[in-house]
Design a protein around this nucleic acid. Structure first.
Length: 510
DNA sequence: GGATCCGTTGTAGCT
DNA sequence: AAGCTACAACGGATC
């Protein structure tokens, strides 16, 4: 009879959790010790990996997991902070004479794969009683490792490629309902483990007891399942019609923080929500009637997520702008810190860009199309800065940040990847009446909310306030250049120059 | 092997 | 107001 140490990493939930289910169902497991390790160096204040919002969100997820494990399954989650290897060593030392399984979810990124293999060779292999078991499809629909290693695998670059992979894997995959494991505690003996000593950073408690978070989202499986119900299960028409988002703003039902999309991404990235559960819910809704299809449907969005996971595992230097087969080496030149800082702090003088970046800073979330607009603006559109700078800022601030997806999306939007749209399709940072966005009210109100300096500006001028006559600026109580920055660049001129630069770079690469 | 088509989600000007 | 077209023209897949 053995102890199962269930190491929660990317699946902070008890529903559809293969590792947890296995530990419950296996007859050889006598007791279960769930653990979570905060691996960021959080005692020196905010980490360079996660800003405060992100760290707090992560902590909320872990606390909710602790609550659910305790109330639903009678298990106590032990929380640690520190580097995984020494922490796991110290945990296992409590069980020196016993048979122990260290169970976790497969993580596909380089750093975590190295960590996992070090733990296996330096700790597990040193004691004949200790074993590991890793479950492969916890965070993704596909078994990333097995697909990438199959002899016929070619890195996918389009939705066509993805439908081929799904067909090979699942046959008739459209509206398929995947097997999802859920634990029914009444089917099993209680498996509570002896408690062991655990310690984690007091900084996390401080964050949690501080002022109410500016983030709209609350971390955890409970909030994830509530949101799934509210935005997907109860919104069948929305699911069936899901397409390219037409509104860049939030402001649903008068709430300026409620997304027009599902808002489930923070829960998918932390694994509070199983991606298979979300897929299944959509399948069940769509089976009943007409619905949009990949690439624009929710299933399509989830398939792009799988695509980026496959690529991130199979493309060498996925997160680099050099030596990366999926990144054209554009000469971005020397970083201009003032431009980068203005972009990050929402002081570019372009109201829509600034509203987006301030929303990101305050809430840790930004609308899908907003991410397009600000990343195009930073790179090939206006500022001509290396996409990796934007990637780093997103990764520190976005509560739904995910290594595979964040890099993939930046490669896409910077126009450097094989799957990118043509480089000359540049988003206009100042949408006008011709834009698909509702500039009259919704988008203008979105700017008024996040850039209060401009709250009295008429919609006609709010996207390019520096072009407004001085009388309009005075009436709005906001003089451009003193109360709100003038544009840091000439958007039309930089666009023209950058198109030319990009073209020359491509010619050189050919 | 050259032509043609296609790719999740562009913009601006004209009718 | 919606739809067409030019813009300038990538790169991989397909025929």
């Amino acid at each position: 009879m053995s102890v199962a140490i269930v190491w929660f990493r990317k699946c902070l939930r008890i529903h559809d959790n293969q590792a947890l289910s296995w530990a419950f169902e296996s007859n050889q497991i006598k007791s279960i010790l769930p653990i979570y390790i905060f691996e960021e160096e959080i005692d020196q204040g905010t980490t360079n990996k996660m800003n405060e919002n992100r760290l707090r969100f992560q902590y909320e997820c872990v606390l909710d997991l602790q609550h659910n494990l305790h109330t639903k399954l009678g298990l106590k989650l032990h929380i640690f902070s520190g580097q995984a290897q020494p922490v796991i060593q110290s945990i296992l030392d409590n069980f020196e004479e016993q048979r122990v399984w260290l169970i976790s979810e497969y993580c596909s990124d380089r750093e975590n794969i190295e960590k996992q293999s070090q733990i296996e060779t330096k700790i597990i292999d040193q004691n004949l009683n200790w074993f590991t078991k890793t479950f492969s499809a916890g965070h993704t629909i596909l078994d990333i490792e097995s697909i990438v290693n199959s002899p016929t695998y070619k890195p996918p670059n389009s939705m066509n490629d993805m439908t081929r992979i799904f067909s090979d894997e699942f046959g008739d995959w459209r509206n398929i309902v995947f097997d999802v494991t859920d634990i029914n505690p009444s089917d099993h003996q209680p498996k509570q483990c002896q408690s062991i000593e655990s310690e984690f950073s007091t900084r996390l408690e401080e964050l949690n007891s501080g002022p109410p978070p500016s983030s709209y989202f609350i971390g955890g499986e409970s909030a994830a399942l509530q949101r799934l119900k509210k935005k997907v299960i109860l919104e069948k028409e929305f699911v069936r019609n899901f397409s390219k988002p037409s509104s860049i703003s939030t402001n649903i039902e008068g709430n300026p923080l409620e997304p027009t999309t599902t808002g489930l991404s923070p829960y998918l990235s932390t694994g509070c929500l199983s991606v298979r559960r979300l897929w299944n819910v959509c399948s069940e809704i769509q089976q009943l009637s007409e619905h949009t299809k990949p690439p624009v449907s929710i299933h399509g969005q989830l398939m792009f997520r799988e695509m980026f996971y496959l690529l991130s595992k199979s493309v060498v230097n996925w997160d680099q702008d050099q030596g990366n087969t999926h990144c054209k080496e554009i000469e971005w030149g020397v970083t201009e810190q003032t431009l980068l800082d203005a972009w990050e702090s929402g002081e570019t003088g372009f109201p829509l860009i600034d509203a987006m970046m301030r929303q990101l800073d305050a809430t840790g979330w930004m609308h899908h199309l907003g991410r397009h607009a600000v990343s195009c603006f930073l790179t090939r559109g206006q500022l001509w800065q290396n996409w990796t700078h934007g990637r780093d800022i997103f990764s520190r601030k976005l509560i739904d940040s995910d290594w595979a997806l964040n890099n993939g999306n930046w490669l896409w939007l910077a126009g450097v990847a094989p799957f990118s749209m043509p480089y000359y399709r540049v988003y206009n940072p100042c949408p006008n009446q011709k834009s698909s966005l509702n500039v009259e009210t919704e988008t203008a109100n979105f700017i008024r909310h996040w850039v209060p300096e401009l709250s009295e500006f008429p919609s006609k001028h709010i996207f390019e306030p520096h072009l407004a006559p001085l009388s309009v600026q005075q009436l709005a109580g906001c003089i451009i250049g003193s109360d709100y920055p003038s544009p840091i660049v000439d958007r039309k001129e930089t666009r023209r120059q950058n198109l030319e630069r990009f073209k020359q770079n491509l010619a050189k690469l050919r």
